[in-house]
Amino acid sequence: MKAPDFAYARPASLDAALALLAEHGEDAVPLAGGQSLVTALNMRLSAPGLLVDLNAIPELAGVSEDEGVVRIGAMTRHRDVGTAALVRERLPLLAAALPHIAHPAIRNRGTIGGSVALADPATEWPACCLAAGATIVVRGPGTERRIAADAFFLGLYTTALEPGEIVTAIEFPVPGDGAVWGFEELSRRHGDYALVGLAATGRRSAVGLSDLRLAFFGVADRPVLARAAAAAIEAGDLTGAQAALADELDPPDDPATRAATRLHLARVVLGRVAGRMRDGTVKEETSHGA
């Protein structure tokens, strides 16, 4: 199980990387943390002519805050995202999601930008971006685009990225007063892809929850913002919210787990997360097992 032959370059600047990607067109593939791409190469599921390694571009990594926005460089490793003091303080949702991302050795190497650009529908960061109302910052040859997460994830491994563009950063608005969040993921074993997961943000007041954003993952071809379910919960109707998921989610029917199971589990998770957000108990829950 050895990768097919390809060329490799490791440019030292973003401009140089973009120039290589532009020059080689569809034959070139950017290499971020590589935790999915190198797997695909080893299995010969991918056969690019050129890998453009983004790991030597200093400006792509790091976490900073400016005017109510936390900016996370695309090449920031999963572990550095979730353990950054700024993230733990400002974006506890992301810190809560971190332990669910694969295993320590994968978290040490994989990057948030790579994960967002790959858009695997069963992974944590895309859903967190959606729940937190993040903006995906992308660069193509000479131009920068800023794309709302709501408009970024378009389908199975499909995003709004144009050929030659790469994700350079993700910007998260700092949650304001009364903000609450919730996170829960069900996977068969620690670190497995989610059977179903939910990243949620909102605002809690004496009258209940508002501004709810419920981003489900593992239950469609992309992370899904369940708007009708959110509206029902804001109206105090959990049962209605759970029912609404039948229309909002489109879970895969895979040989190990039926679609009906995922839909059922999504409803259970919704009930648990919404309950915790409503009650102000923000701890995240983990569940693994058979």
Binding site: L186, R188, A256, T257, H264, A290
Partner: peptide, 15 residues
């Protein structure tokens, strides 16, 4: 076997 969530949920009549 294997007793997966599918199997348990089916047994419970939940799916």
């Amino acid at each position: 076997q294997p007793v997966t969530p599918d199997v348990v949920l089916e047994a419970l009549g939940l799916i």
